Amino acid sequence: MEIYIKFVLIGLAIAMPVGAITVEMTKQGLRNGFIHGWAVGLGGMTIDAGLILSMYFGFASVLSLPYVQIPLWLAGAGFLAFLGYDSIRNSDLDMATSDNTKGKIKKSFWRTYRNGLLVAVSPGNLIFWISVFGVVLSDSYQSTGKLSFIIAGFGVLCGILIHDLGLLSIVSVTRKVMSKKMIQAVSAMAGVLLLGFSFYFLYKFILALWLLFQ
Protein backbone atom coordinates (compact mmCIF):
# COMPACT_ATOMS: atom_id res chain seq x y z
CA MET A 1 0.00 0.00 0.00
CA GLU A 2 2.87 2.35 0.81
CA ILE A 3 4.40 1.75 -2.63
CA TYR A 4 1.04 2.40 -4.32
CA ILE A 5 0.44 5.73 -2.50
CA LYS A 6 4.01 6.82 -3.16
CA PHE A 7 3.66 6.26 -6.89
CA VAL A 8 0.18 7.81 -7.04
CA LEU A 9 1.84 10.99 -5.75
CA ILE A 10 4.63 10.60 -8.31
CA GLY A 11 1.98 10.22 -11.03
CA LEU A 12 0.33 13.46 -9.86
CA ALA A 13 3.72 15.20 -9.92
CA ILE A 14 4.36 13.94 -13.47
CA ALA A 15 0.99 15.25 -14.68
CA MET A 16 1.09 18.65 -12.93
CA PRO A 17 3.47 20.59 -15.22
CA VAL A 18 1.71 22.27 -18.14
CA GLY A 19 2.65 20.48 -21.34
CA ALA A 20 1.18 19.83 -24.76
CA ILE A 21 -1.19 17.15 -23.39
CA THR A 22 -2.56 19.51 -20.71
CA VAL A 23 -3.06 22.29 -23.24
CA GLU A 24 -4.89 20.04 -25.72
CA MET A 25 -6.95 18.45 -22.94
CA THR A 26 -8.04 21.86 -21.58
CA LYS A 27 -8.83 23.15 -25.06
CA GLN A 28 -10.99 20.14 -25.94
CA GLY A 29 -12.68 20.28 -22.53
CA LEU A 30 -13.64 23.93 -23.00
CA ARG A 31 -14.74 23.65 -26.61
CA ASN A 32 -16.35 20.21 -26.72
CA GLY A 33 -17.00 19.14 -23.14
CA PHE A 34 -15.67 16.85 -20.42
CA ILE A 35 -15.74 13.61 -22.44
CA HIS A 36 -13.59 14.99 -25.26
CA GLY A 37 -11.09 16.51 -22.84
CA TRP A 38 -10.87 13.17 -21.06
CA ALA A 39 -10.42 11.37 -24.40
CA VAL A 40 -7.19 13.34 -24.91
CA GLY A 41 -6.06 12.39 -21.39
CA LEU A 42 -6.87 8.73 -22.03
CA GLY A 43 -4.82 8.84 -25.23
CA GLY A 44 -1.86 10.17 -23.25
CA MET A 45 -2.36 7.53 -20.55
CA THR A 46 -2.36 4.80 -23.19
CA ILE A 47 1.15 5.86 -24.23
CA ASP A 48 2.19 6.07 -20.57
CA ALA A 49 0.94 2.52 -19.97
CA GLY A 50 2.81 1.36 -23.07
CA LEU A 51 6.02 2.93 -21.77
CA ILE A 52 5.59 1.21 -18.40
CA LEU A 53 5.18 -2.13 -20.21
CA SER A 54 8.22 -1.40 -22.40
CA MET A 55 10.30 -0.80 -19.26
CA TYR A 56 8.93 -3.96 -17.69
CA PHE A 57 10.06 -5.99 -20.70
CA GLY A 58 13.40 -4.16 -21.02
CA PHE A 59 12.70 -2.14 -24.19
CA ALA A 60 13.41 1.28 -22.67
CA SER A 61 16.96 1.29 -24.08
CA VAL A 62 15.56 1.18 -27.62
CA LEU A 63 13.62 4.42 -27.03
CA SER A 64 16.81 6.18 -25.93
CA LEU A 65 18.58 5.59 -29.28
CA PRO A 66 19.19 8.82 -31.26
CA TYR A 67 17.96 7.17 -34.48
CA VAL A 68 14.63 6.54 -32.75
CA GLN A 69 14.34 9.92 -31.02
CA ILE A 70 15.26 12.20 -33.93
CA PRO A 71 12.35 11.23 -36.25
CA LEU A 72 9.99 11.56 -33.26
CA TRP A 73 11.10 15.15 -32.64
CA LEU A 74 10.23 16.04 -36.24
CA ALA A 75 6.94 14.13 -36.23
CA GLY A 76 5.96 15.73 -32.91
CA ALA A 77 6.79 19.21 -34.21
CA GLY A 78 4.68 18.66 -37.32
CA PHE A 79 1.66 17.32 -35.48
CA LEU A 80 1.71 20.00 -32.77
CA ALA A 81 2.04 22.69 -35.45
CA PHE A 82 -1.03 21.25 -37.16
CA LEU A 83 -3.01 21.20 -33.90
CA GLY A 84 -1.94 24.75 -33.05
CA TYR A 85 -2.83 26.10 -36.48
CA ASP A 86 -6.16 24.28 -36.46
CA SER A 87 -6.96 25.60 -32.97
CA ILE A 88 -6.28 29.22 -33.97
CA ARG A 89 -8.04 28.98 -37.34
CA ASN A 90 -11.17 27.40 -35.86
CA SER A 91 -11.21 29.23 -32.53
CA ASP A 92 -14.58 30.79 -33.42
CA LEU A 93 -16.02 27.52 -34.78
CA ASP A 94 -16.50 23.91 -33.74
CA MET A 95 -17.88 24.80 -30.31
CA ALA A 96 -20.39 22.62 -28.49
CA THR A 97 -21.46 24.79 -25.59
CA SER A 98 -24.85 24.07 -24.07
CA ASP A 99 -26.36 27.28 -25.47
CA ASN A 100 -24.90 26.84 -28.93
CA THR A 101 -26.82 24.18 -30.77
CA LYS A 102 -27.03 26.03 -34.07
CA GLY A 103 -24.35 24.79 -36.41
CA LYS A 104 -22.80 22.57 -33.76
CA ILE A 105 -20.31 20.12 -35.15
CA LYS A 106 -20.29 16.63 -33.70
CA LYS A 107 -16.85 15.65 -32.51
CA SER A 108 -15.65 12.08 -32.52
CA PHE A 109 -14.46 10.65 -29.20
CA TRP A 110 -11.94 8.53 -31.08
CA ARG A 111 -10.60 11.55 -32.97
CA THR A 112 -9.80 13.40 -29.75
CA TYR A 113 -8.44 10.17 -28.25
CA ARG A 114 -6.15 9.88 -31.28
CA ASN A 115 -4.99 13.47 -30.70
CA GLY A 116 -4.01 12.50 -27.17
CA LEU A 117 -2.07 9.50 -28.47
CA LEU A 118 -0.17 11.53 -31.04
CA VAL A 119 0.64 14.42 -28.70
CA ALA A 120 1.94 11.95 -26.09
CA VAL A 121 4.22 10.19 -28.59
CA SER A 122 6.79 12.95 -28.30
CA PRO A 123 10.47 12.62 -27.43
CA GLY A 124 9.97 15.01 -24.51
CA ASN A 125 7.50 12.60 -22.95
CA LEU A 126 9.52 9.51 -23.86
CA ILE A 127 12.82 10.93 -22.64
CA PHE A 128 11.23 12.05 -19.37
CA TRP A 129 9.87 8.57 -18.73
CA ILE A 130 13.15 6.89 -19.60
CA SER A 131 15.58 9.26 -17.84
CA VAL A 132 13.56 10.25 -14.78
CA PHE A 133 10.69 7.91 -14.06
CA GLY A 134 12.42 4.92 -15.67
CA VAL A 135 15.18 5.14 -13.08
CA VAL A 136 12.64 5.15 -10.24
CA LEU A 137 10.72 2.21 -11.67
CA SER A 138 13.90 0.29 -12.40
CA ASP A 139 15.01 0.75 -8.81
CA SER A 140 11.63 -0.53 -7.62
CA TYR A 141 11.91 -3.51 -9.97
CA GLN A 142 15.43 -4.44 -8.84
CA SER A 143 14.90 -3.95 -5.12
CA THR A 144 11.43 -5.43 -4.58
CA GLY A 145 10.64 -7.47 -7.68
CA LYS A 146 8.03 -7.67 -10.43
CA LEU A 147 4.94 -7.35 -8.22
CA SER A 148 6.09 -4.03 -6.74
CA PHE A 149 6.91 -2.80 -10.23
CA ILE A 150 3.35 -3.54 -11.37
CA ILE A 151 1.91 -1.82 -8.27
CA ALA A 152 4.19 1.18 -8.86
CA GLY A 153 3.15 1.45 -12.52
CA PHE A 154 -0.53 1.17 -11.62
CA GLY A 155 -0.06 3.84 -8.95
CA VAL A 156 1.46 6.25 -11.47
CA LEU A 157 -1.43 5.75 -13.90
CA CYS A 158 -3.92 6.34 -11.07
CA GLY A 159 -2.11 9.55 -10.15
CA ILE A 160 -2.28 10.78 -13.75
CA LEU A 161 -5.97 9.82 -13.91
CA ILE A 162 -6.73 11.76 -10.70
CA HIS A 163 -4.99 14.82 -12.16
CA ASP A 164 -6.88 14.57 -15.47
CA LEU A 165 -10.30 14.13 -13.83
CA GLY A 166 -9.61 16.98 -11.40
CA LEU A 167 -8.45 19.33 -14.16
CA LEU A 168 -11.40 18.51 -16.41
CA SER A 169 -13.88 18.89 -13.56
CA ILE A 170 -12.57 22.43 -13.03
CA VAL A 171 -12.68 23.07 -16.80
CA SER A 172 -16.29 21.78 -16.99
CA VAL A 173 -17.44 24.11 -14.20
CA THR A 174 -15.50 27.05 -15.67
CA ARG A 175 -16.91 26.35 -19.13
CA LYS A 176 -20.47 26.90 -17.92
CA VAL A 177 -19.77 30.44 -16.74
CA MET A 178 -17.48 31.51 -19.60
CA SER A 179 -18.83 33.41 -22.57
CA LYS A 180 -18.30 32.17 -26.13
CA LYS A 181 -15.77 34.96 -26.71
CA MET A 182 -13.75 33.88 -23.67
CA ILE A 183 -13.72 30.24 -24.80
CA GLN A 184 -12.66 31.37 -28.29
CA ALA A 185 -9.83 33.44 -26.79
CA VAL A 186 -8.64 30.49 -24.67
CA SER A 187 -8.80 28.21 -27.72
CA ALA A 188 -6.69 30.66 -29.75
CA MET A 189 -4.24 30.98 -26.84
CA ALA A 190 -4.00 27.18 -26.62
CA GLY A 191 -3.18 27.15 -30.33
CA VAL A 192 -0.35 29.63 -29.79
CA LEU A 193 1.03 27.47 -26.95
CA LEU A 194 0.86 24.34 -29.13
CA LEU A 195 2.73 26.20 -31.89
CA GLY A 196 5.32 27.17 -29.29
CA PHE A 197 5.78 23.51 -28.35
CA SER A 198 6.10 22.62 -32.03
CA PHE A 199 8.89 25.18 -32.54
CA TYR A 200 10.68 23.79 -29.48
CA PHE A 201 10.40 20.26 -30.90
CA LEU A 202 11.76 21.52 -34.23
CA TYR A 203 14.68 23.15 -32.42
CA LYS A 204 15.42 19.88 -30.59
CA PHE A 205 15.23 17.98 -33.89
CA ILE A 206 17.79 20.31 -35.53
CA LEU A 207 20.02 20.19 -32.44
CA ALA A 208 19.89 16.38 -32.23
CA LEU A 209 20.64 16.12 -35.95
CA TRP A 210 23.58 18.49 -35.62
CA LEU A 211 25.02 16.57 -32.66
CA LEU A 212 24.59 13.26 -34.48
CA PHE A 213 26.62 14.34 -37.51
CA GLN A 214 29.15 16.48 -35.67
Rank of each mutant, 00 (worst) to 15 (best):
K146G: 04
M25L: 14
N90D: 13
D92P: 01
R89P: 01
L53E: 08
S91R: 11
L211P: 00
I105N: 08
R175V: 10
S91L: 04
Q69L: 15
T112H: 04
F149D: 01
W38Y: 11
K27I: 04
L63T: 09
G166I: 03
V156T: 13
Y56D: 06
G11A: 11
L9H: 00
Q142S: 15
L209H: 04
L168N: 08
G58H: 00
I130D: 01
A20D: 07
S169Y: 07
S148T: 09
F205E: 03
L202V: 12
G191M: 06
N115G: 09
N115H: 12
P71C: 06
N90I: 02
L65E: 13
L9R: 02
K102F: 08
S143Y: 04
W73F: 14
G43D: 02
K107N: 07
L167W: 01
R114A: 14
I5D: 05
I21S: 11
K106L: 09
W38H: 00
V171A: 09
L209T: 14
Q28D: 03
G78H: 01
L72C: 12
Y85R: 11
I5M: 10
I70Y: 05
L118C: 02
Y56P: 03
L9K: 00
F128E: 04
D48G: 13
D164M: 08
G37C: 10
Y56V: 00
K107D: 01
M25V: 00
V173Q: 06
M25E: 10
M182K: 13
A96R: 09
G124C: 06
G19M: 06
Q28W: 07
Q214I: 10
I35T: 13
S98F: 07
G76H: 00
G43T: 02
M1N: 11
S98A: 12
G37D: 03
I14L: 15
S61M: 02
I206P: 00
F133S: 09
G155I: 07
G116S: 10
L209K: 05
F197E: 07
N90R: 07
L9I: 15
I170Q: 00
G29D: 09
K104M: 14
A152C: 11
W110M: 13
G103K: 01
Y85A: 11
D94H: 06
T46C: 15
A96E: 05
Y67V: 14
A208I: 06
W38I: 15
V156H: 00
L147G: 02
Y85N: 11
E2H: 06
W129Q: 11
A49C: 13
I162Q: 04
G191F: 02
L12W: 01
Y203S: 13
A49R: 03
D86H: 11
